[in-house]
Simulated scan of single mutants.
Amino acid sequence: MKWLSKAKKDRVVFINKKTNEVTYLPHAKTRSLNNPEEQVQLETFLSLIYDHGYPAENIRVCVPVKMGSATKEADIITYSDPEGFQPFMIVECKKKGVPDSVFKGAIDQGFSYASATLAKFVWTTDGHKNAYHEVLNDRIGERKNNVIPSPPPFQGGNNFGFKLKTNLFRLMKAPARLLGELIKFPSVQNAFIYIGILLTIMTLLTKVALSNMNSILKVSNKLWMEYGMDFSWIYYALAFMALLMTVSLGGILSFIPNMGKKALKKKQIVFLSIFLFIPVWFAGSEFAKAWWNWEHYTNMKHEMWMFMGPQLAIAPIQLVLFALILAISNKKPKPTPQRKRLAR
């Protein structure tokens, strides 16, 4: 166990090997190490001292906490003062490998102790998995927007470095949290289905195009000379065909979420495909500037990435467009007065 030898030398803990017990010497609290949870508690106690700079005198284990008419026991409480009048952080420990439901329950338990003691932070751990939270007194049920990257330094909740680290951590987490919230919407979930189908069809069409590239080069050579066509048009053709087929399948196959209440008409399929083609046009234009020229294209080895590269680059944009179309098409119309009367 990390820091145990040093802790023994420093007279922070005493291990009785005969009884397999640990005594936390600053406050003479003895506990059995036969309990797997106690082993995690000991590791965390030592980590607070040697990894995070908390004085041993300011840490107490198995602290009685009065909660209404009942008295419960917090695993560890750190204090701003050695006398134990100003609770700073609640630490809840669970044995290693507990299920997520148990771990989340431990987080809530830590917050209940924090509410009762007015502690400012909660650290929940099972020795491997850790959760660190700031306690917001006006939002005691908050568990997302108050996550912090690590335990606060001793008496350092307002430390500039810690606040900067916390703000940067939350800023980096924000996109992932936003994406997680967006994925809960059915239209976004269904949009992923469409993107998966689109990329699959585009991959198959690209394979067909690459296997017939000699024939395509003969035709495109003439078009290049007569009309100034470049090779981005091959990508445009493949991408538009893939879009037409994807949107059409949405109206044919029952397991694919439809973009309307009824099967789409041909004009609607073409219109939606043209709308979804907008980012394709811009992607082709940008890639054409980079390497889609006659000399480069005819002399290079033709590979899948040449067409799938721009397609993957715009996949997030098309995902958003699919989600918008699905959200609008499946939006329930507001009931008219006549419909309201019929409903009655």
Rank of each mutant, 00 (worst) to 15 (best):
A131V: 13
Q39F: 08
N293G: 07
N20M: 14
P279L: 15
L342N: 02
E37S: 06
N293C: 07
F275M: 10
S273P: 06
F255A: 03
K331R: 15
A74V: 11
N158L: 14
F14Q: 05
G196P: 03
I317K: 00
S80E: 15
Q338H: 08
C93N: 14
Y113W: 07
K8L: 08
A176W: 14
K267A: 01
P82R: 05
N293E: 08
V135H: 10
L326E: 02
F162V: 02
L4W: 01
R170N: 12
G97K: 10
M213R: 14
Y194H: 06
K2L: 15
T30W: 07
P87G: 03
G161W: 10
S32Y: 00
G157R: 11
M306W: 07
S220R: 11
I234H: 02
I77N: 06
F282S: 01
M241E: 04
K95I: 01
K66H: 10
I193R: 15
I234N: 13
P310I: 02
D51I: 04
S273I: 08
T19Y: 06
V91D: 03
K163N: 09
A315I: 02
K301S: 09
L136S: 11
P55C: 02
S220D: 04
P279R: 11
M89T: 10
S187F: 07
M308F: 12
E73N: 09
G110A: 01
S254W: 13
T298K: 14
V91W: 06
P153I: 09
L198G: 02
S80V: 08
H27A: 09
R60G: 01
R31H: 09
V63Y: 10
W224A: 14
F162I: 06
T298H: 05
N190Q: 05
Q86N: 08
L136W: 12
L198T: 00
P149C: 13
H296Q: 08
A343P: 00
T124W: 15
L217R: 10
Y54F: 10
K17G: 01
K120E: 09
S254L: 12
L319A: 07
K18R: 11
L178D: 03
A131Y: 12
L253K: 15
G105M: 02
N330R: 15
I107K: 12
R31W: 04
N299A: 03
L171Q: 06
I274P: 00
F192P: 00
T125M: 14
K218E: 00
K184T: 08
